[in-house]
Write a protein that binds this DNA or RNA. Structure first.
Lengths: 376, 376
DNA sequence: TGCGATTTGTTTATTGGCTGAATTATTTGA
DNA sequence: TCAAATAATTCAGCCAATAAACAAATCGCA
């Protein structure tokens, strides 16, 4: 089988695209191997010939993405293999997060290991966007310097914010009181970050990616992040779905009780009023039912087999579980054909920063050819 | 720019994949041109060289997918161009549909033109799956013979059913009283269809594709099909999203009023009870509000900019519109940033059959290399 | 009428990248 | 010690793209 190339096609493909694709294929195969595969093993796994894999691996080693390591224990006769592994001294991702009451930065290397982690706890609302992002930028600069002292090259950064994002602009972050903030520009005001490309995304989306890194593979799940607001990140076939304008996942404002409590958004009966952090803290009795109703809607609409509760839900998971599952069984049309799996997130508060850092290294992993061109 | 190849990569790419991709690119470019483009125009539009385009076009002509036609009126000096167009005598798609009270078949050619159309109106429930599908198979056979009399080659068929589908099996079709029916096998029992590959999909999904063909381009929209049940098809970037197991779009069972009317699915307050065909016929006063609440959930979750109401909603659109839009304005978090567009479908009852036929020709268009191999 | 300018489409040499077979390297086991 | 086995590299060949030159056909202006 050869690869299906994304259809409908919209750009020409040339030999260099073949190379780019196969570089990514080899890198991905090494990354997803439990052991430390040889070139021959990679060839067998991918369907490429050993000659081709050798050439591709040479490029990836020269570009600082792979290294040769001791092979796994031998099993029989024959020339011993050379093991391959992702290098932990190549590109790294810088993750940044701003939230109501803290700032965080972390550095993740190509293997997915968190190498450095910094946080500052303080209410970010009074300072305003400019001051808060300057402080976060200084935190990021410390993280970058620490990473470079380790021999890592920071390939880019991503910022998690609790709000709606368009391109690089934070359109609205109600809980921070922000509106139309060009966050990357403000962060780059810190000299040590001036040369970095900085992406911005919603915290729930990035937390979903953080969770994805932990599970591995190409899963399908909905990650629900209970912070002051409730957001969700939808991962389909291992890819984050961001919506047409990047505004997907606003599950906190899905209507649960049409004539229910008024919400700060202007509507009535939003999920957030029954299952937000404040409701949880107040031991709101309807929280589980409300979550179950909203999640049933998601499953009916999208056929997502797994739901992961993260953020503030993690400590309350035991208490909420039964109530949510009861609603799912009752309200999901296909519940009888295949049950919906509900579980708590494996990462806690750091999911979003970590997901942000992952975004950067994910880009390198998905398009190693771009990284090779850069270091050539 | 060269194409990004679908990441994360999972299969090797070789030169033949490049050819396959670029064949699809050229075919797509010709198909989406308003005029009848020359080879040179296709080269300019795609970024390929004229030499390459000439070679690709030769293959597509030899394979019976493109034809040379009179060029559009000249505009200046230079050798006159040769126009290119999709052939209307090549592959065709056979669309089939079974619903509560009718059977339908239609044939669509590569250009998207409906060439033949057959329907039989009768209650399909008493007959049972075997007899009903035999009758539909005979209708399909008539359509196929008519198409072949025109010089068309039926490349495959697709069947629209009102139910949940897994692979080629109809798991449940409550309104037909079906359970675990291998529809393609029964259809192929008709000798004239024995050699065809027959896909099966939910009627709402296929109706969404039918609507997509009419709009053209790569739009994003949610198509809502109001039949006895209410289904939805989600189109993102011109592609249908089917869900992990193919069970997405069950908007009819999204909860609107948690303690509302009991539904045949066992839950309470499903949209279907307030905005299904029966409720519409009874002039149900809550229909618009219920639709608005459920659609707001979709937009909040998925950030879909356009909603198309089809099927039984089309004649009621004028009456429902204001009520739905009021709820959308009130309940969609991003309504203030960008309004949601609501419109009636352009195709009526035949949307699903037509979408089914489109599925087949879409496959040929997306992978012309497979078609060329077949006719070689 | 004729010729240069212009545009289309084809031909030819070159290049990049993969394949397959042969070759070299290194180990196990009889 | 040598045959069998496995890993990795080398090299010729092929495919599909590019670039540049060339051939074909028309317009426009003198």
């Amino acid at each position: 089988m050869t690869a299906r190339i994304s259809s409908p096609a919209s750009a020409p493909v040339r030999q260099s695209s073949v190379r780019a694709h196969n570089l990514a294929l080899v890198l991905d195969t090494v990354a997803n191997s439990a052991d430390r595969p040889s070139r021959a093993a990679v060839a067998a796994a991918t369907g490429l010939t050993r000659a081709t894999v050798s050439a591709l691996v040479d490029d990836l080693i020269a570009g600082g993405l792979l290294t040769e390591v001791d092979p796994p224990p031998r099993t029989g006769a024959g020339r011993p293999a050379t093991g391959l592994a992702l290098t932990s001294a190549g590109p790294a991702g810088l993750g940044l997060e701003i939230n109501i009451d803290y700032l965080a930065a972390c550095v993740v290397d190509l293997t997915g290991t968190v190498r450095h982690r910094f946080a500052e706890h303080a209410d970010q609302r009074p300072a305003g966007a400019t001051a808060a992002l300057a402080a976060l930028g200084r935190l990021g600069a410390r993280a970058r310097l620490a990473a470079e002292a380790d021999g890592l090259t920071v390939a880019g950064a991503a910022l998690a914010v609790p709000g709606l994002v368009s391109g690089s602009s934070v359109r609205v972050a109600p809980n921070l009181g922000w509106q139309d903030v060009d966050a990357p520009a403000l962060l780059r005001g810190v000299p040590e970050l001036a040369d970095l490309t900085i992406a911005v995304d919603n915290e729930a989306n990035l937390a979903a990616l953080g969770e994805l890194r932990v599970t591995g593979g190409k899963p399908d799940f909905l990650y629900v992040s209970g912070e002051i607001g409730i957001g969700a990140g939808l991962v389909i076939d291992g890819e984050l779905y961001r919506g047409v304008r990047g505004w997907s996942g606003e599950i906190g404002h899905v209507t649960v009780y049409p004539d229910g409590r008024p919400c700060r958004c202007g509507a009535n009966g939003c999920l957030e009023q029954y299952a937000g952090q404040e409701a949880l803290a107040a031991d709101e009795p309807l929280a589980a039912a409300a979550l179950g109703i909203a999640l049933s809607a998601v499953v009916n609409l999208l056929d997502v087999p797994v739901i992961v509760l993260g953020g503030a839900y993690v400590p309350h998971f035991g208490r909420l579980r039964d109530g949510i599952e009861a609603e799912l069984r009752r309200r999901v049309l296909t519940a009888g054909l295949a049950p919906v799996t509900l579980r708590a997130a494996s990462l806690g508060a750091e999911a979003a920063v970590r997901g942000a850092a992952d975004v950067v290294i994910r880009a390198v992993r998905d398009d190693p050819a771009a990284w090779l061109r850069r270091t050539r």
